[in-house]
Nucleic acid binder design. Structure first.
Length: 416
DNA sequence: TCTGGGGTCCTAGGACCC
DNA sequence: TCTGGGGTCCTAGGACCC
């Protein structure tokens, strides 16, 4: 058996821990540049605010209804997530952290499933202050189905879904688009084949599904029939690391773009080192504003392979600059840019490249450790590369950000 | 005026080989 | 006139997820 533990309205719940005045009113959390809605309280959902909706379209209505909008505070959410995950680990030993606000754990079918769920829901609420929903079922896909029911429960937020008749009953009321793993495209194709409900999908012939929609959709069908195809996974080492942003104002100068992208490289490389990995390639991408259709549209990316795997920011900066030179075009107003580090491997399992002695690699790694230690001790960007701008970055708008209650001494909550 | 960011996996087709 | 057949590996892009 699997259990899926998912924090309710996670970003909003994090904010409410330290701002109780936000309880019982409509609250939304916005993406970078205060662009889109990425989390909604139950009250905001009730006002009809949809996920990923551009905030400017609903701002007037939302505020008129007494709603509060907050910029995203990822430091806070990451820290609260860490607390939740560590409690899950204490309780269930092995867990799969599936996203910032949800995790899978394994249970035995002989366990007292509902009681375990309920107890754990109460524990998280008491010790961290966020409410979690828990869906328990024989496959991950059915856990996702179960948790939808759990979230609708007024109080206990736990739902166990094992019985075939019950699964069938719920699937009859579920459209295929709402099944985990079925997206817009697949749903359209299924509809074309005459399959509209989850139950129709469950009973569809596997061979046909595999042939026309691929192996993933076939797995989904099997999972709906209680055959577990998706196992627990380990996400502790990412296989790629992305750092990208939309800018508040568009940029057309090469130098300005290069300077900003160097910040992305810096941040991606830091994360690379924090997970004790090396990467051997970097993709640079740039794009114009896709919503300004009157402007000339352009987007492009370039992959620069490195001669050997490294975690040395300087190497990635050089590669980025080369890549950017290949794709940069004059006369374009760039709105978005970013980098992806690829071909990531564990730094302790490194394949030696014959051209470079392990001594050189060791030197580079020591250099970067020193770099990171200094910045950890004396503050971010105490040391930085010449291509970067000094000081913090001010090119994104975060007008309504709350304090870093749990990660900054200056921002600790004040008790009156 | 204003529209996010970060991931994973699969697959078709190209390049290359014999 | 007419131009094989079988295989592997890699990669860009698609589809999906939160």
């Amino acid at each position: 058996m699997f259990a899926l533990i998912d924090c309710d309205n996670f970003f909003v719940s994090c904010e409410r821990i330290f701002q109780p005045k936000l309880k019982n009113i409509p609250v939304v959390v916005l993406s970078n540049n205060d662009g889109c809605v990425v989390a909604r309280s139950a009250e905001a959902k009730a006002l009809g605010v949809t996920m990923a909706c551009p905030f400017f379209k609903i701002e007037k209505m939302f505020r008129a209804q007494g709603g509060v909008a907050l910029s995203s505070n990822y430091e806070l959410y990451a820290d609260i997530s860490k607390r939740v995950m560590s409690l899950i680990q204490q309780e269930f030993q092995n867990l799969e952290i599936y996203s910032i606000d949800e995790a899978f754990v394994e249970l035995k079918s002989s366990d007292r499933l509902y009681e375990i769920g309920l107890k754990f829901h109460q524990k998280i609420l008491k010790e961290v202050g966020v409410s979690v929903s828990i869906g328990i079922a024989p496959t991950k896909t059915l856990c996702k189905l179960a948790i939808e029911t759990a979230k609708k429960m007024p109080k206990d937020k736990v739902f166990v879904l094992t019985d075939e008749a019950k699964i069938s009953e719920i699937l009859k009321q579920t459209e295929v688009i709402d099944i985990w793993g079925i997206g817009k495209n697949t749903a359209q194709k299924l509809n074309f084949m005459g399959i509209f409900t989850g139950e129709e999908l469950r009973l569809a012939p596997c061979g046909l599904i595999k042939k026309s929609l691929g192996i993933n959709t076939e797995k989904t069908v099997l999972e709906l029939n209680r055959f577990a195809c998706l196992e627990m996974e380990n996400h502790s080492q990412q296989k790629s690391i992305i750092s990208s942003r939309s800018f508040e104002k568009e940029i057309s100068q090469f130098n300005a773009l290069e300077q900003i992208i160097s910040e992305f490289v810096d941040s991606a490389c830091l994360r690379l080192r924090q997970q004790h990995s090396l990467a051997s390639g970097i993709i640079v991408f740039i794009a114009s504003n896709r919503f300004h259709i009157s402007q000339q549209q352009y987007q492009n990316s370039f992959l620069v392979p490195l001669p050997y795997p490294t975690n040395n920011t300087a190497k990635f900066l050089q590669a980025m600059k080369f890549g950017l030179t290949q794709i940069f075009k004059d006369g374009i107003f760039y709105k978005r840019a970013g980098v992806t580090l690829i071909d990531i491997q564990d730094q302790n399992l490194k394949q030696q490249n014959l051209l470079f002695s392990s001594e050189q690699n060791l030197k580079e790694q020591k250099l970067m450790s020193a770099f990171d230690e200094i910045n950890a001790k004396l503050g971010k960007k105490t040391l930085y590369f010449g291509i970067q701008k000094s000081g913090q970055q001010y090119f994104i708008k975060r007008q309504f950000k709350s304090r870093n209650y749990t990660t900054s001494w200056d921002d600790l909550a004040i008790v009156h």
